[in-house]
């Protein structure tokens, strides 16, 4: 609850309203997405990103929070994970989709989870 409060506070500060989006994923999808994101042999996102609920995270990349604010469009978030080089050719993030590190279905589940952060 407190986190939601902080988020909506921050969000209102920068003028975005994080409402319940129409495309809110099922709890099952976010659970599975979280498992893939945290799995060292799958997403291994924690190697680089602090993510709520994850331990021993690195700080190679920015903490993942306020994702609906940062990425109002789910498609933009998916694009960042699929191939971060499209946004920034000097990116230091692996191209999960372009290099088939994760399957398209796994990426969808990860996006579902990350978008809840």
């Amino acid at each position: 609850m407190r986190r939601i409060l902080i988020i909506s506070l921050l969000a209102s500060l920068i003028g975005v309203q994080p409402g319940l989006a129409d495309d809110d994923p099922s709890p099952d999808a976010t659970t599975r997405g979280k498992a893939i994101a945290f799995d060292r042999n799958k997403g291994n996102c924690l190697a680089c990103h602090a993510i709520e609920g994850g331990e021993l995270a690195g700080n190679y990349g920015p903490p993942l929070l306020l994702m609906k604010v940062r990425f109002p469009e789910r498609a933009d978030l998916r694009a960042q994970i699929w191939d971060a080089a499209v946004n920034d050719p000097n990116t230091r993030m692996p191209p999960y989709g372009r290099h088939r590190i994760l399957t398209e279905e796994e990426i969808d589940l990860v996006v579902d989870f990350i978008h809840t952060l």
């Binding site: 924690l46 190697a47 680089c48 021993l56 995270a57 690195g58 700080n59 190679y60 000097n90 230091r92």
Partner: peptide, 8 residues
């Protein structure tokens, strides 16, 4: 680019 940062 990432010297000084933590990878895990």
């Amino acid at each position: 680019q990432s010297a000084g940062l933590m990878l895990r």
